[in-house]
C-alpha cells in the first residue's frame, strides 16, 4: 500500500517518542549503577544523565568489597540473594514444567483432567495476596518458610497454569500421525510420550520453560511473605538495601536492579516469537 511522505514522518516521530519514553527509566538506572557516591543524589543544575566519573564501585559494594567511598559495610552481600533467586526460579520452573506439561499431554491426548483448564485459569485470576494466609501457615507447618525449596514449590504451583496452557496448545498443534505410527509398531503409550513426543517438543518446552522462568524470576510479593533472612530473593534484598546512616543506597540498588533486569530481558527477546502465545495463555499463537 502506498504511504505518503507525511505519514512516514509521522510514523517515525511517533515511534521515536515512544522509544525515548520507554528507554528513559532503564537508561537512568543503568547510568546510576555506574555513578560514584558523590553523583548519586546530584539534583537540579548538578543533575547529570551520564556518570561523570564512571565506576564499578557499586557492583563491588554489593558483593562486599569495600573499595567505594561508602563507610558502611553490608551485613549481607548480594551473592546469596542472587543464588536464592536462581535456585527458586529454576526449580519452580522445573516443577511447573513437569507437572504442567504432563497434565497438558494427558488432557490433549486422553481427555483426562477435564477440570484442569478452568481450575488453572481461576488460579491465575486470584490475586496471590488473597490466598497467602493459609499458604504462610502451611509453609510454616511444613518448615518451608525462608527456604529456597519452599519458594520453588509455590512458584511451581503459581506458574503451572502457564506451562499447562502453553504446552496444551503445542500438543494440540502437533500432528498425530507420528505417534500413531509408533503405536502401530507396538510402542506403549508411555514410550511414545517419552521417546517420540517429548523430543519433538523440545523447542516448545524450551520456550515455555524460559517464559515460566521469567515469571518466577520476576516475583516480589511471594518472596516478601515467605522469606525472612537466609533465602531472600533479589527484589526483597534490594528493597532492604538502605540504612539509616546512608539513606537510600541509590547506586548500589541500581547496580543490583541491573543484574536482576538483564536475564529476563535477554530471555524475553530470545522467545519473542512465543511471547504472544505465552501472555495470552495460548489463546493466540503466532
Amino acid at each position: 500500500m502506498h504511504r505518503s511522505l507525511s505519514f512516514e514522518t509521522f510514523r517515525y516521530a511517533a515511534i521515536l517518542t515512544f522509544l525515548a519514553l520507554s528507554l528513559i527509566p532503564t537508561i537512568w538506572m543503568m547510568s546510576m549503577a555506574f555513578k560514584p557516591v558523590a553523583e548519586w543524589q546530584a539534583a537540579g543544575a548538578n543533575l547529570t544523565w551520564w556518570p561523570e566519573n564512571p565506576t564499578l564501585d557499586n557492583f563491588r559494594f554489593i558483593f562486599g568489597e569495600s573499595g567505594s567511598d561508602l563507610i558502611v559495610a553490608l551485613e549481607r552481600t548480594a551473592g546469596r540473594p542472587i543464588l536464592a533467586s536462581l535456585l527458586a526460579a529454576t526449580f519452580g520452573t522445573l516443577i511447573a514444567m513437569v507437572a504442567g506439561s504432563a497434565a497438558a499431554y494427558g488432557l490433549s491426548r486422553f481427555g483426562s483432567g477435564g477440570n484442569l483448564p478452568l481450575a488453572l485459569i481461576q488460579l491465575r485470576i486470584f490475586p496471590p495476596m488473597a490466598v497467602m494466609i493459609p499458604v504462610m501457615i502451611m509453609w510454616a507447618f511444613l518448615g518451608l518458610i525462608d527456604t529456597w525449596w519452599g519458594l520453588a514449590l509455590i512458584y511451581g504451583i503459581v506458574t503451572m497454569p502457564f506451562s499447562f496452557w502453553l504446552m496444551k496448545t503445542f500438543f494440540d498443534d502437533m500432528p498425530r500421525e507420528i505417534e500413531d505410527a509408533a503405536l502401530v509398531e507396538g510402542c506403549s503409550r508411555w514410550r511414545v510420550f517419552t521417546r517420540i513426543t517429548l523430543p519433538i517438543m523440545r523447542p516448545a518446552l524450551a520456550s515455555s520453560g524460559l517464559f515460566v522462568f521469567i515469571l518466577n524470576w520476576s516475583d516480589y510479593l511471594i518472596a516478601l511473605l515467605l522469606t525472612t533472612r537466609d533465602w531472600v530473593t533479589i527484589p526483597v534484598y534490594m528493597a532492604s538495601l538502605s540504612s539509616s546512616m546512608t539513606g537510600q543506597l541509590y547506586g548500589a540498588k541500581a547496580a543490583l536492579g541491573l543484574i536482576a533486569a538483564v536475564p529476563p530481558v535477554i530471555m524475553g527477546i530470545a522467545i519473542q516469537k512465543q511471547l504472544v502465545r505465552g501472555l495470552t495463555f495460548g489463546a493466540l499463537k503466532e
Binding site: Y220, M238, I269
Partner: peptide, 16 residues
Amino acid sequence: VLLVPMMVVPAVAGYM
C-alpha cells in the same frame, strides 16, 4: 526495543 519495559522485573521497575 519497545517490548523491553514489559520484561523488566516489576520490583526493579518500581525502583526505577
